[in-house]
Amino acid sequence: MDAKETEAMLRGQVAIWQNLFGFADSMALKCAVELGIADIIHSHGRPITLDQIPASINGSSSPDISSLARIMRLLVRRDIFAAHQPSDSGDTLYELTHSSRWLVKESEYNLAPMVTMENHPDLLAPWHYFGQCIKDGGMPFKKAHGMEVWEMASKNPQFNTLFNDAMACTNKIILQAIVAAYQDGFRSIGSLVDVGGGIGEAVAQIVKANPNIRGINFDLPHVVATAPAYPGVEHINGSMFESIPAADAVFMKWVLHDWGDEDCVKILKNCRKAIPEKLGKLIIIESVLQQEGNGLFDDIAYIFDLLMFAHATELEWKNLLAASGFPRYNIIKIPTIPSIIEAFPK
Score class of each variant (00 low, 15 high):
I40Q: 02
T97R: 12
F23P: 07
D261P: 06
P327K: 10
M240L: 15
K266N: 12
G215P: 07
Q158A: 15
A181T: 14
V207H: 01
T49M: 05
V193T: 13
A177V: 04
D91Q: 12
E234T: 14
L124Q: 12
E5F: 02
P121K: 03
D122R: 08
T6S: 03
H222N: 13
M114E: 14
D305R: 13
Q13P: 00
A180L: 06
Q132R: 08
G197C: 12
V203K: 03
M139H: 14
G59T: 00
P211L: 08
E34M: 11
R101I: 03
G260P: 10
T49W: 01
H98L: 11
E286C: 11
G280I: 06
K281I: 01
D91N: 11
C31Y: 06
Y182I: 04
S67Q: 15
G185N: 11
K273A: 15
G197H: 05
W102C: 00
F186T: 09
L103W: 04
I332G: 02
E7Y: 07
M9I: 03
I332F: 06
N58V: 09
K273G: 09
G196C: 12
L175Y: 03
F130V: 13
M147P: 09
L307S: 02
A274P: 11
N217E: 07
F309R: 07
G137I: 02
K30E: 02
A312E: 14
C133P: 05
T226L: 04
K155I: 05
A32D: 02
I341V: 15
I236W: 00
N164E: 07
D64S: 12
R11M: 14
T92A: 04
V195C: 08
Q18V: 08
A177P: 02
D91P: 12
R101D: 07
C264Y: 05
V115E: 10
A249S: 15
D298H: 07
L321I: 02
I303G: 08
M240D: 03
R73I: 00
M72N: 06
V207G: 01
F186G: 09
E314W: 09
R187V: 09
Q176G: 15
G293F: 10
E242Q: 15
Q291I: 10
I48G: 02
L307M: 05
W254T: 00
M72R: 03
G198Y: 12
G325R: 12
A144W: 00
Q205P: 01
L192R: 04
P63K: 06
F297R: 03
T116L: 15
A125L: 14
A310Y: 13
L321H: 01
V179F: 01
I174E: 15
D88N: 14
A168R: 12
S26F: 11
W102R: 00
I216R: 06
Q132T: 10
S67K: 15
A229F: 01
P86M: 11
M117I: 01
A168I: 06
N164M: 08
A323V: 00
D64F: 06
D64I: 08
S243I: 03
H145T: 10
A15T: 05
V76R: 10
M252I: 04
I199F: 07
V265R: 14
F81K: 01
R11W: 13
G45K: 09
G12S: 14
R187P: 06
A225Y: 05
Q183N: 09
